[in-house]
Structure formats: C-alpha cells, structure tokens
Amino acid sequence: MISARVPRILALLVAWLAGTAAAQAPEYDLAARAIAPGIWVVEGSTENFSRGNGGNIVNTAFMTTGAGVVVIDTGPSRRYGEALRALIEETTAEAISHVLITHHHPDHAFGSQAFEPATLYMLDDARAALARDGEAFADNMYRMIGDWMRGTEVVVPDNVLAPGVLEVGRRRLQIIAMTGHTGADLVVFEPLSGVLFASDMVFHNRALTTPQSPGLLGWRAELEQLAELPVTVLVPGHGPVSTDLSPLRQMADYLTWLDTLLADSARAGLSPAEVMNAPIPARFDGISERRYELVRTTTHLYPDYEKRALSLLPE
C-alpha cells in the first residue's frame, strides 16, 4: 500500500514545486442552470482532465422534490463536491436527501466526501467497481489534475440503488441500470418533466470513452431503449444539454463507425498503431477529443477484435 501512495506524494510535490504563485487553492466556478421546474444542471467543459480545468469536464445535476433534493453525481474531487453542495444550498432551501452516483468513474464519483454518507446511493455492481478501481483512479487523478485533488478520498456509498422506481416527494424517478459504458451505468428518467439524466451512456459533441466498456454494440443497443422514453430534455454525462434526441443519434452513429473501423482493420491485419492513425470521418468534426479517444479505445478494445480475426494455429 505504501508504494501505491508514492506517485500521489510525488504528484503533490510536483504540484507544490510548480505552484509557488498559487498559494491559494484553485476554485471551481460552478453555475446552476434551470432546465425544467425544480431541476438544474451544472455543466462542465468537453475537454480532457487537466490542471487548468481541475477535472470539471462533467455534467452534474440536482432537483427539488418537496421531500429532499436529489443530486446526480458529485464531480471529480472533494473540492468540486464542496462547491456543488454550496451551489445547491444557495439555490434551494430544501435539504439534500439522495445523492445518486451514476457510475464509478472518478469525474462522477470523487466529490462524494462533501455529502452525508447516509445520502449516497449507487448501483451494486458500480459500488463493487468503485471499490476495485477507486485507488488506481485516484492515483491517476492526482497525476492529471494535481492540487485540485487535495484531500480527496474514495468513498464507496453504503446504500445500494435498485433498478425500478425511486419515489422522492412528488417525483417518481425511473432508475435504469445499463452496462455499455462501464458495465454498471445508472440512467435516471424524471417523468414529470421528461428529463433524461443519461450520464456517460451519452457523450454529446465529445468522444465517448471506453476503458471499462464491455462492448460497443451492446452499448448501442441500450441507447435504442433510451430513445423510447418520452424525453423532453437530455442531460448527457459530457457535453451540451439537448432538447431533442440528436445526441442519441450521434452516439449510435459514432459507435457504429468505431465498431466497423475496429472490425474491418482486424480483418485487414492492421496493427494497433495503424488503427490509431486511421482517418476519422468529417461528419465527426464537431466531436472533441476524438483522436485522443481513438488511441485509448484502440488500446482497450482492439486486441479482442484482432484475436477474433485470427485463427488458432495447430501445432
């Protein structure tokens, strides 16, 4: 365990050496935007993690219910979580009763220390994934955003969120368990206003990420289920909020292209470095970080496509 801490200590040391001028800690500048009566979104950028943005690349949200505020995701660090909680308390007098963590990725689950442990909820498989990967994610986050992470510890929620209906005050939230992004992905639908909190099942104008994805085609099939809901506002995990289903179409198009690229490349015997350099169609020009994520996705998923395209050679 000591060795696992070393990169973190080094990262802090580097941050300290580099940040002589930044004696005061960096601050997140969060703003709540109303998207429906009693529902707000806190939008992040569509960049990658950096010391400039402190990992504020994610959309979080909260809603009043008459019986307690429901928060969706806590952000990338303790400090983000604290800023989010302060923003919620500024926006409404209602107490926070439920904090739903959509999946175990650090940008969604690392602000949880700012909230009461009894209010934290997560799908059971996502809890297990957070317990398994959390420390490694934390080391990586210290490396990528440095001082913004100060004081952040992994918190695995005690409360298990079950698929079905979660009734809080006047809202009957549909709790939908999916798998495409990480194997345990929570999607929340609020039927009163038709707001779909898709989290990272939907990236909008930002390339999707695949480090824990069980498969591109399974992900695409789950998006078809979401398209059947009576959605008026779609809140993606990353990228701009939409009042139509165009982000779902963009995702399906992108997933189909990715799967075809990997399958065709494997059938042609291409090496992974060749796939990473493959042309990306011009229709995806509006999707940020697409080349960066193609390098990552090739690393994560191409080895399986390659093996499937080869035959077992008899001795």
Binding site: S271, A273, E274, V295, T298
Partner: peptide, 16 residues
C-alpha cells in the same frame, strides 16, 4: 515509426 503520443496502457504500447 508509429507510436501513440501517450501510453494508455503502459504494459501494452503499440509500435509499428
């Protein structure tokens, strides 16, 4: 020489 600009997995970095 084709190598990605960053190693997503430091145990498996593709080189062509």
């Amino acid at each position: 020489l084709r190598v990605p600009e960053f190693a997503e997995d430091s145990a498996q970095v593709p080189l062509t």
